[in-house]
Amino acid sequence: MKEVAFGQYYPVDSFIHRLDPRLKLVFLIAFITAIFIASNFWGLGACVLVLAAIIVFSRVPLGKVLRSVRAIAFLVLFTAVINLLFYAGETVYFQWGILVVTKEGILFSVFLVIRLLLLVICSSMLTYTTTPVALTDGIESLLTPLKWIRFPVHALALIMSIALRMIPTLMEEAERIQNAQKARGADFESGNIFRRIKAIVPILIPLLLSAFRRADELGDAMEARCYMGGKMRTKYKKLKFSWRDGLSLFVCVLLITAVVLLRIYLGDVI
């Protein structure tokens, strides 16, 4: 049976894996804020240092981490080139028409590239080290205060949870249907874009029908188990803070402070 490797979760046991998902979400937000507060290479350096520590402690192989960058390699390159060629700096190294390469341009595009890489890598570290289920629990828990403004936190969490549960099933099904149509000579790989879109119809229709059928049956099964919305519902799982989380929170505060101080005392990148 094919295991559908869903999401990017990298299943090892590590310090980072064991952190409370809420903390990891807060940490991610704080880290991203820090990246944007950082206005010079020293600030970014502090971020790089913290991220490097996270990677080491997460026991996710470096190759795997760098793979997450591959998806946005083009974007990074594009940003770098545009800034390199159009940034209006003072120390001109090279000029051709409207294109200028300046010292400031080089520095700035290097700065941007590091910033982008930090952003992507830190986000994927979250998904590498946190199961989708834990992530959902974390989001639900963090959103709980919104219940006060009648935001349907519970319904949202249930939707996410069911989606996560169903994704592997539907992926398997999509593959099975695709194989069945391939066995009947369907060709999904050749032809122009219109042909390819048309070729997907024999997969899409059965998949949609099955999704509706499943939703219908799941609804019955949930009702049969006394589901009546979020009223009077209790929750079995409680997230717990541990010393690891305390320590990480401390690192988080430290990083923000450092980045702010570095910004104030060392000024901007250029």
Binding site: V133, S161, R165, T169, E217, L218, A224
Partner: peptide, 14 residues
């Protein structure tokens, strides 16, 4: 309690 037919369409959690 009712247990239905399709083993894939009755569970809500992962």
């Amino acid at each position: 309690g009712v247990v239905f037919q399709n083993p894939d369409n009755q569970t809500v959690a992962s």
